[in-house]
Amino acid sequence: MADVPSDAPEHCPGTSSDQAGKSSACQGCPNQNICASGAAKAPDPAIEEIRQKLTTVKHKILVLSGKGGVGKSTFSAHLSHALASDDSKEVALLDVDICGPSIPKIMGIEGEQVHQSGSGWSPVYVEDNLAVMSIGFLLSSPDDAVIWRGPKKNGMIKQFLRDVDWGEVDYLIVDTPPGTSDEHLSIVQYLSGAGIDGAVIITTPQEVSLQDVRKEIRFCQKVKIPIIGVIENMSGFVCPKCKNTSQIFPPTTGGAQRMCEELNLPLLGSVPLDPRIGRSCDEGKSFLTEVPDSPAAVAYQNIVQKIRDYCSSHTTSDHPF
């Protein structure tokens, strides 16, 4: 796949292509001999290091969506809270949205710092059994912009997987940015040795969102990540005054349900719009404990149970590359 270094000559064929080191564009490139020898085609040694590091992590789940702002981070955070409500489980939440990390705020740990120890970076703990890592902890102020091109983002993701001292973990939840680009390819590539249980795909009901989400599903199929299921977020809003439901983001093409039928994917559930969800996120609290009996919290719990069931019926395939 695309593996053209950022400082490569124009028309670089990519370090793992058959043409590496041999095409006309390679003439004069300082790495021509390395590429021509085939050394660059070998898998990144970090993949094996990450596999060894993550042998203590039982289940690895990606939260994906082609579309932005559909609730990936909200869901990742609440999935982590729900899984960690069982004291016997250790949960880790990794935020690989390098340019727009929302997890520290949603988890109520904005401004925390990451500490270095002998065994690597220590994640920030929200509860005794809930660890979080995000680039947000490495920034000096909330205004800090991470203006990085792909290769630097990839390096950061590699470090998050290889250099963070996660310890014994039952579930590692990975929250991703929107799209199908560097961050996504990197997380899949670096976890290829350790194995990914599957991906949860988030969408909103309208076609403008579904059209991007179909691309993300295609991405999962291409890189061979099993899809645990699809969640429809922001589906319907119940007016707190008159109790009538409005479709703010109308499912003009049948919403997530129709898409799942067409693509033969499980629909894990639908979560209604509830202003209290957004407020809980802004305040860094868990909506599930703030308003546990609301329809949205019940929907969340049902979805989380399906993910638990999926993981327990499915053991990460240890496929050495």
């Binding site: 796949m1 695309a2 593996d3 053209v4 270094p5 950022s6 490569a8 082609g66 091109r149 792909g150 290769p151 199908t180 680009s181 560097d182 996504h184 390819l185 691309k215 993300e216 295609r218 991405f219 291409k222 890189v223």
Partner: peptide
């Protein structure tokens, strides 16, 4: 179709 491209 997904456009699965890295930065460059």
């Amino acid at each position: 179709e997904a456009v699965i491209w890295r930065g460059p």
